Each structure stands twice: as structure tokens, then as C-alpha cells.
Computed example of a mutant assay.
Amino acid sequence: MKILHTSDWHVGKVLKGRPRVDEHIQVLAELVRIAEAERPDLVVVAGDLYETAAPGPETTRVVVRALTALRRTGADVVAIAGNHDNGAALDALRGWADAAGITLRGTVRTATDPVVTGRTAAGEDWTLVALPFVSQRYAVRATEMFDLTGAEANQTYADHLGRLLDALTGSFRADSVNLIAGHLTVVGAKTGGGEREAHTIQAYAVPSTLFPTSAHYVALGHLHRRQAVPGPCPIHYSGSPLAVDFGEQDNTPGVLIVEATPTTPARVREVPIAAARTLRTVRGTLDELKSLEPGDAWLRVFVREKPRAGLREEVQELLPGALEVRIDPELAATPDAPRRVSRAGQSPRRLFADYLTEAGHEDPAVSELFDRLHEEVS
């Protein structure tokens, strides 16, 4: 059978104040075109469909239309909640999803709910353990379904996830293509640069040995960098189909196409997605920036000039795609700066002037603006 593996759409993402709905529509349209060309039997969306747990109507519309379009290609579609999603809200859509032939799993409801089965048009059976993101708070609650002892309830997050997977993968059969979809961090995998740090720390990391040798393929979401993870079975992150922040500008957005049978290892290949605008970080003085040809890329600009009023506006006039403008950290660094003296008793104007001096931002226009604002509020 053939599987299309995607994850971390993050629809609704705003980049430095700039909405990216149009980009997401283009990216997901390209993803659907890939599905139409590849004709997968199953599409797995491994979490983080949305950027926030409270998506707006337009964001919800984009996701629902994308899932519907993927289903119309003839593939079975299974989507799980990630840490950015509201699992309960995703479960609330299950009535619509079931009617549309789409499988949604937002939370672990029962001991059997995450196990999804199907059969391809060619008659191959498949079993998928669709495990949505489980926070530390709910890891114990989920595993209580399997009659834990008091000692077992005090084990670590990885222990609880391992117990869940052991119980759920007990449904795997020798004559079925056995799959796992999860939204989690695996020890040794590399972050993409734009993930939510609270859910990628070591306390949330699990070893790849949690996955059984009976799994033909593990489709992961959460880390935005496309990568394979060594383990007892094929384990892959598909990565995000677009770079969600400048920390991911060097990632290659795409989806994974997986082919597997009950008796052969999974074969995995990447299909790139190029619909989204690229992200770039550029450095230079104003004169150097004038010679840049950034195309339509979104830019993070490190300016090699001393701070002054209006500098940001000058850069954005030169480079309309500049979403973030900062003084180059290498220029602003002052490792040998003297220790600050006491400021007790000094006037606000004197304090602000000292701050500007220490920051290397001695601009009369800024000082005049401060004086005017201070006079107004005083």
C-alpha cells in the first residue's frame, strides 16, 4: 500500500505580524495535487493542523477544505491532534468527519479508540495506531484505562507512552500493514527551529525503542525538520510543508510518500513543496542592502548600522519583504562594557540618556521624542 505522510500545517500562523493564510492555501493545494498524482491509499496528518487551540472561522475553513480535498482523491484520511491543536475541539468534528469518510483523533477516549483499520482498493489490510499528542498531565489518565498500579502511575512520561503503545500495538497482525501515527519528540531527533519549546524539552522526549519491530512505519509530527530516526522500525518525521519561522529557513518543506507491504520494509521518498514564500536572513549596511535581490522572500534583516530613529522604515522601504529588522547582534555586542553605576536619584531624562549611551543609540531625535512624551505624561 502507499501512504502520504504530512504534519505540522500550523494553519493560522502569523509571521512577525503578517498573516499567512494565502500561503497556507497554496501549500495545501499543492499537497492535494501531490495526492492526486501519487494516488495514496492512506493520508496521515500527524498533528498540528492549526497554529492555535482556538482557530478562527477562516482557519477552520482552510483545514476542513484541505482534509475534504484529500479524501476526494480516493485515499483514506486520518488526522490526529498535535500540541498546538485543541484535541477536544477536534473530537467535536468527528460527526462531520465520519460522514465525510475522514478519521479524526483529538484525544484518547477509550482503550481501543486510537486503533484504526482499513483495507486498500487492492485488498491489503492496514492497522494504524493514531495517537494524538498526550500532555504530561493526561499521560497517567490515559494509561489508567489499562489498570495501572500505584507504582506504575508514578512512572515517567516516556514510561506511560510506552505502556500506551504496548497496549495499542497488540492489535497488529502479521498479515496487515502496521502503522503508528504520533505527535511527540523522539530522543536524538533534531528540532526544526519553530516548535513550541515547552513540549520539546527532555521531559517530553521518548526513546525510539518504544516503537515495536512489528510496525512497518511510524509517521511522526511535532518536529518541523524532515528526518529519519534510528530505531527498531522505520521512524520518520515528515516536517512542516512550509517554514513557519525564520529558525526553519534552511529546512526543505515537503511530504513523504511511503510504500509498504506486510512482508517488506517501508520505502520512503520525499516530495518537495515549493508553494510557500521562502524565508531568508540577510545582513549588511544600508548601502549593502541596496544591492540585494531577495525576490519575493520574507526577510529577517540584521542591519550593520548604529541604531537611530527611522532606521527600520528606511530598511523596509528598501526591502518591502522585511518582516523583522534588528541591529546586527555582532555589531551591538559589547562584552567589555563597564559595570553599571547606581541610578538612584537621577531624573528620567538622565536615566534614558545613559541607557542610550550604553546601548550605542545616541540619537538626538530619539532623545527629543522621549522628552516630549515625558512632558505629556507628567
Rank of each mutant, 00 (worst) to 15 (best):
S176M: 04
V177L: 02
V177Q: 02
N178W: 00
N178R: 09
L179A: 03
L179D: 06
L179F: 04
I180D: 06
I180C: 05
G182F: 03
G182H: 08
H183I: 09
L184K: 04
L184D: 03
T185N: 10
T185S: 15
V187L: 15
G188L: 01
G188N: 02
K190G: 05
K190T: 13
K190V: 13
G192R: 01
G193K: 01
G193D: 03
E195S: 09
E195C: 06
E195Y: 08
H199A: 11
H199M: 05
I201N: 12
Q202R: 15
A203C: 00
S208A: 15
T209H: 08
L210Y: 05
T213M: 08
A215F: 01
A215H: 03
H216F: 07
Y217G: 08
Y217L: 07
V218D: 02
V218C: 04
A219G: 12
H222Q: 09
L223F: 15
L223D: 14
H224G: 07
H224P: 10
A228E: 12
V229Y: 10
P230M: 10
P232G: 13
S238Y: 11
S238W: 13
S238D: 08
G239H: 11
P241T: 12
P241G: 14
A243R: 10
V244L: 15
V244A: 12
F246D: 08
F246T: 11
G247Y: 12
G247W: 11
E248W: 09
Q249S: 14
D250Q: 13
T252Q: 14
P253H: 12
P253R: 12
P253Q: 12
G254I: 07
V255P: 04
E259S: 15
E259F: 07
E259C: 07
A260W: 01
A260T: 01
T261V: 07
T261L: 04
T261W: 00
P262W: 13
T264M: 09
T264R: 13
T264W: 03
P265D: 11
A266E: 05
A266R: 04
A266L: 08
R269T: 13
P272C: 05
I273G: 00
I273E: 00
A274E: 14
A275C: 09
A276V: 04
A276I: 10
A276E: 10
A276F: 06
R277H: 13
T278I: 03
T278A: 14
R280D: 10
T281M: 01
T281H: 02
T281D: 05
T281Q: 06
V282M: 00
R283S: 14
G284E: 02
T285V: 06
T285M: 11
T285P: 08
D287Q: 06
E288I: 04
L289Q: 03
K290R: 15
S291F: 04
S291R: 15
L292T: 02
L292D: 03
E293V: 11
E293N: 14
G295E: 01
G295M: 00
G295W: 00
A297M: 10
W298F: 15
L299E: 09
R300D: 01
V301I: 06
